[in-house]
Amino acid sequence: MRKINFGIIQFPGSNCEQDCFHVLSYVLKQNCRYIWHDTKTLKNIDCVIVPGGFSYGDYLRTGAIAAQSNISLRIKEYAEKGGLVLGICNGFQILTELELLPGVLLRNKSLNFICKDVYLKTMNNDSVFTSEYKLNETLKIPIAHAEGNFFVKKSEIKNLKKNNQIIFQYSDDKGLIDDSSNPNGSFMNIAAISNKKGNVMGMMPHPERVSENLLGGLDGKGIFKSIIKNLT
């Protein structure tokens, strides 16, 4: 089987790129390389991963400065041509600032940095990023963020629903979605969305942290396996 070429973007302040690299290279045996933010080209890449961290110290707004870098403009072109882009945590924030995904990630309602396991309900498994999961399947994946409170303009909500862009919602372990299972105040408990075309996804939880049993679970591995399966 052909190996997929993953490109993992590194900004000053990224800190989850090695976790992604480990899962893709050593656990899933794919080709993987880091791409420094100053790079002006994006060549021979099948899927771009924008990892978590605190790019540029989260200055101005989370993801705002990273979205102005050389590589971000290439990522935008790449996505607009249909290339697969997955943004995790700070990566999700960067993709909204790049306007590849709708909405904004605001400060958590509690103002706290929240680092804990949460449950997610799979709302769309008809995506290249989630086809390995069952519809309505609940997953246990950790979050670690201070700005994960998803906010979107009212006018955009209809589109998100109509185009099936809501991929995961925060729930309890049985899949019940309500305020008590919403860790950060996100609108409609939204934890992950895609763009209309479905080739770009952003998620606040960290699937790379639960992709091998040794690290406490396998619930996140399906994201990466879905991408690989859909590209081969």
Binding site: L60, Q68, V104, L106, V152
Partner: peptide
């Protein structure tokens, strides 16, 4: 384009 995010 940069300094303000007019969604919020």
């Amino acid at each position: 384009k940069f300094l303000v995010n007019e969604i919020i």
